[in-house]
C-alpha cells in the first residue's frame, strides 16, 4: 500500500462518506420519490409519423380526455420550428401525460417550472406525466438546437380555473 498522511487519510474517509451519502440520496429520490425520466416507450417511423392513420395518434396531435377534468393524454408533434398543437388548455387539478416525438430533427421539450424536461429524438416517443394544480400559464420550449428558427419554437399550456 501507499503511505498516506494522517490528515489526508481523514479527508479521504470524509470524501468517501460524502459520496456514499450522495449515492443514498440519489437512490431515495429516484425510487422513493419516484423521480421520472423518459424511458423507451415506443419506436415510430419519423417519415410517416405525421400521416393520419387510425393507430397513429400523432397523425392528429392534440389533447385526449381520459377522465373529464382529471386525466388527459397530450400528443405533441415537434417539427422545425413549431410544436403541434401550440396551445393546450386543461382544467386545474388535471394530470396530463405528454407524448412527444419529432418528424424531422432532434428537439427538446421542457415545461418551465415543472419537472417535465425531455429530449425529443426522431424515431422515439418521449413520455412524462405531470399534475397541474393551480390556474396559470406555462411556457413549453424547445431546448435543443434544431436550426435557424429554433428560438421561435415554443408553446403554452393554459391551466384554467
Amino acid at each position: 500500500m501507499i503511505h498516506v498522511d494522517r490528515n489526508e487519510k481523514l479527508y479521504i474517509i470524509i470524501s468517501v462518506a460524502l459520496i456514499s451519502v450522495f449515492f443514498v440520496a440519489l437512490g431515495i429520490s429516484s425510487f422513493v420519490y419516484g423521480i421520472q425520466v423518459p424511458v423507451p416507450e415506443q419506436r415510430v417511423d419519423p417519415r410517416t409519423i405525421a400521416t393520419p392513420a387510425p393507430d397513429n395518434p400523432f397523425g392528429e396531435p392534440g389533447l385526449r380526455e381520459l377522465v373529464p377534468g382529471k386525466r388527459y393524454d397530450a400528443y405533441i408533434l415537434a417539427q422545425i420550428w413549431s410544436f403541434t398543437p401550440r396551445e393546450i388548455r386543461v382544467p386545474a387539478g388535471s394530470t396530463v401525460t405528454f407524448y412527444v416525438t419529432s418528424k424531422d430533427v432532434q428537439h427538446g421539450f421542457r415545461i418551465n417550472e415543472t419537472n417535465i424536461n425531455m429530449q425529443i429524438v426522431p424515431g422515439e416517443v418521449s413520455k412524462l406525466t405531470v399534475t397541474f394544480d393551480e390556474p396559470r400559464e406555462y411556457d413549453f420550449i424547445c431546448h435543443e438546437y434544431c436550426g435557424v428558427g429554433h428560438q421561435a419554437m415554443a408553446g403554452k399550456i393554459i391551466v384554467e380555473p
Binding site: 440519489l26 429516484s30 425520466v37 423518459p38 424511458v39 423507451p40 416507450e41 424536461n117 425531455m118 429530449q119 425529443i120 429524438v121 424515431g123 422515439e124 416517443v125 418521449s126 413520455k127
Partner: peptide, 13 residues
C-alpha cells in the same frame, strides 16, 4: 442522456 427516450432507466441510474 438521462432525458433521452431510447435509453432504459436502469442503465441511466
Amino acid at each position: 442522456q438521462y432525458l433521452d427516450p431510447g435509453v432504459p432507466a436502469g442503465w441511466k441510474f
